[in-house]
Design a protein around this nucleic acid. Structure first.
Length: 546
RNA sequence: GGCCUUGUGGUCAAGCGGUUAAGACGGAGCCCUCUCAAGGCUCAAUCCCGGGUUCGAUUCCCGGCAGGGUCACCA
């Protein structure tokens, strides 16, 4: 068979000699050990926690080795295209503190390896496919979807391996006449790899995350060029990661099963294989079953979920870091004020098996992270959330920056020795402020004492209350009211003889707390009343009588 | 089903031939305390099972079992 003639019939364009592409995209001049990594999403615009997880690994490795982290858009499937997706990806990663050095829609002088959209790279893919055809390593296939489905059904029925291989590779041995008559008839075709592999051969392969793994050689004549003339993922991956000079491909472990295809492709193309690291997927338990986090079923997979819930972005990143490198937490405890970038991230430390997503842990990380902020930083963070997700009332409250910062300072004990850790995420932080404002103060008076007692306590304390009192003076008054109403003024007395009293100071404080905040739990009541001031505090005490 | 892969407390996990089998989250309790959030202290809880190899296996080998992934002109 005249393969040059065939190649010209299939792919008529003329291309420069292939060495030209090698020259166009030369080896990168980087320091030894520098890794070039990439995030290569399809343009659906939906990047989820799993993407962020591996992007974080990519970014950390590139930037701790003096390498490059770039963005490539895998838009070979038009159905996946969503407008504004690329900007959305960039924005999302930026929100979590990850920045690209190079790539699609990135303004950078380093953009010498583009275009970074695969659809715009059709020429180079086609040039290499054409070369493969000439070398007799690829061929056209005219099988229809129905035919393929039929074969697959039969294979399944006979418990055979499904796919296009061996005797099932019908078009592999088409005669010259058949091919040209099909072409003349205008039949659509794809280009398949003429696999040279044999599944009885095992290849051992060293994955940077999984370690040594053995895979079976590929014998499938996979599609490399689709009928629209655009390559499949496999082929585009080989070409792009070679010419963009990627040194380390980090991707989800769902790709492990197609690794043999990629191994063969790199071999057949004569490219040096990059290093691979296959990450485990984030899992969750659903109905007692452990499974991969799913885009459709699990809202917590979406990064927007964390933004909406008001998680502090750095907290999400730190949580992910604890899963990525389990020594991160220990390092952080030793270096409490160091920036994440100072941590020596290593791909080899990454987990080999899928981690269950742990919301409790995230909350803990988040709470601690938020407790490192100043009142101003806290305000700015909460304000950002309120602007986007808050109610009209929230927005009105946040107009008054000075007051909010004052409240945050006092309530959170910022700068003091007893820093509180109430805020897990923006939403809980904002709701915690509700009772400071009369329009959102919505008490549910659930007293544990009778009306007479409650009214007496509230009335007496309203008379006594003086915002000028310091904490101990304030508490002395609580004790006084307690004693006057048959409650133990000292906890020790109450504990010694509980039967002698109707309750203790803590019960009195609870009545006051419910009256003032509408809740039985709150931060320091004396501070809260101080913020509210005499007039409003007293008004609330009196209004809370039953 | 074939192929690949994983199996240490409820969760994330260190350890990788001899350890009292770290630590963190969560749970329980105590202390502190006007309640709560914290904080301090304490406790409970783990090497999937069966065979080897070995003086000795959580660690190595084999076999089960149980998870997970994947078998497209989607990435």
């Amino acid at each position: 068979m005249d393969t040059v003639k065939l190649a010209n019939a299939l792919i008529p364009e003329e291309f420069p000699p292939l060495e030209e592409y090698e020259k166009r995209y030369p080896e990168r001049q980087l320091a030894k050990g520098a890794e070039v990594t990439r995030l290569a999403p399809s343009p659906t615009g939906f990047i989820h926690l799993g993407n962020l997880y591996s992007a974080l690994a990519d970014e950390r490795i590139a930037h701790t080795t003096g390498g490059i982290f770039y963005l490539r858009i895998e838009d070979t499937d038009l159905k996946r295209k969503v407008d504004g997706a690329v900007e959305s990806v960039i924005r999302s990663l930026k929100y979590f503190g990850l920045n690209f050095d190079e790539g699609a829609e990135i303004d950078s002088p380093l953009n010498n390896y583009g275009p970074y959209y695969q659809r715009q790279r059709a020429e180079i893919y086609r040039a290499y496919v054409k070369d493969l055809i000439i070398r007799g390593l690829a061929y056209p296939c005219f099988c229809t979807e129905d035919e393929l489905n039929e074969v697959r059904a039969k294979q399944t029925e006979n418990k055979e391996i499904t796919g296009y291989y061996g005797k099932y590779a019908k078009c592999r041995n088409l005669s010259e006449e058949e091919i040209y008559s099909n072409l003349a008839a205008g039949k659509p075709f794809v280009i398949r790899l003429k696999s040279q592999g044999d599944t009885s051969n095992k290849i051992t392969f060293r994955d940077r995350i999984k370690g040594e793994i053995t895979v079976t050689e590929n014998d499938q004549d996979v599609v490399i060029l689709k009928s629209d003339g655009i390559p499949t993922y496999h082929f585009a991956h080989a070409i792009d990661d070679h010419f963009m000079r990627t040194t380390l491909v980090i991707r989800g472990e769902e790709w492990l099963s197609s690794l043999p295809i990629h191994l063969e492709l790199f071999k057949v193309l004569g490219f040096k294989l990059p290093a691979y690291g296959h990450t485990c997927s984030l899992m969750k338990v659903d109905n007692g079953v452990k499974r991969k986090l799913s885009k459709r079923k699990d809202p917590e997979l979406s990064l927007d979920y964390y933004r909406q819930a008001g998680y502090y972005p750095r907290a999400v990143v730190k949580y992910l870091m604890t899963i990525l490198n389990s020594n991160f937490e220990e390092w952080e405890r030793k270096n409490p004020s160091a920036d994440i970038s100072a941590f020596k991230f290593t791909i080899e430390k990454m987990g080999r098996s899928g981690a269950l997503f742990d919301l409790d842990k995230l909350n803990d990380v988040s709470r601690n992270e938020l407790a490192t902020l100043t009142a101003e930083q806290t305000y700015d963070f909460l304000k950002g959330w309120v602007d986007e997700f808050g109610t009209d009332a929230d927005r009105a409250h946040f107009e008054d920056r000075e007051t909010l910062i004052k409240i945050l300072n006092l309530i959170c004990g910022i700068g003091g020795k007893k820093r509180r850790k109430d805020i897990v995420r923006a939403e809980t932080g904002v709701r915690m402020l509700d009772y400071f404002f009369d329009d959102t103060f919505a008490p549910e008076y659930g007293y544990r004492f009778d009306a007479q007692t409650v009214n007496s306590v509230l009335g007496m304390f309203a008379e006594e209350y003086d915002p000028a009192d310091d904490n101990s003076a304030w508490f002395a008054k609580v004790k006084k009211v307690a004693a006057a109403n048959g409650f133990a003024a000292e906890m020790s007395e109450y504990k010694a003889n509980p039967d002698n009293f109707r309750g203790s100071v803590s019960d009195v404080a609870e009545i006051l707390r419910i009256a003032v905040t509408g809740m039985s739990n709150s931060p320091d009541l004396c501070t809260i009343m101080g913020i509210l001031g005499r007039e409003r505090s007293v008004a609330r005490l009196l209004a809370a009588r039953v």
